[in-house]
Amino acid sequence: MTQDNHGKAYKFGMVIDLDKCTGCGSCMVACMSENNVPFKEDETNKKDSITWMKVFKLTNGKPFPDTDICYMPRPCMHCGGKGDHGHSPCVSVCPATATDYGYDTGIVSQIYTRCFGCRYCMGACPYHARYFNWWDPKWPDGMEEYLSPSVSPRMRGVVEKCSFCYHRYQAARDRAYHEERRDNIEEGEYQTACTQACPAGAITFGDLNNPEHEVSKLVKPDTHQCGKPRNPKAFRLLERLQTNPKVYYISEREWVRKAGDNYRDGEWEKSK
């Protein structure tokens, strides 16, 4: 199943403007609500709290009053992996082929019912984007009424993560097929729940392969370098690991861009 994705295939990606993000949490809740993400009574242990979209809080480490903070929303990065060939860190390690790379969309997809919970993919993901269902998902009596049929609730013992709201892509395709447009989908027809909800308009979503799409215009991905942004204000998280994420960040602030990756002493200054 190796196809290269420079053809007509989509390559869905996301651009998040960190200077616009206010850390309000709408994206997180929009995601939970859209994707039937369960919740527990105590969610303060952030290391076992399922948040497909998680907002990290970064600080520049300077003392008062030179301190600065930045909120960084982190969905699944939908890594293309080394060489952007689809061997994402998580996909390549899954022993049961429960997660794979969609060459037609660039989305790292998953079958929850195939997963048997070895958690290798979680160990492989440097972004902590994958979450394990340590508990049975339980909704307070009656609250399961709001669950969406578009996303199957996961059971205990499996790993889950952001899907770029793939069901919305499916819904858009259903409509397109129905209207005999085959899978010709307009930019606005397929948007993730977080993109739609963000009150600050900090999130942009679209096809990175389509130069007309806003995401391409914002970061100008370099196809010869596995999608590395050509916009100097844009960056990807942990670019140096060659995971080739499809989530890009934009910030005017240098310290924020620097925090996006690891640099040894003096390296950042040189790399600029």
């Binding site: 309000c24 997180m28 009656g142 709001y146 909800a197 963000c198 600050a200 308009g201």
Partner: peptide, 21 residues
């Protein structure tokens, strides 16, 4: 007021609605 944007509490409205408590 909001042109498509929404805060997290608004999105959570259904949790208020179906809350068994």
């Amino acid at each position: 007021v909001n042109d498509g944007g929404i805060c997290l509490h608004g999105i959570s409205g259904l949790q208020y609605l179906y809350d068994p408590s």
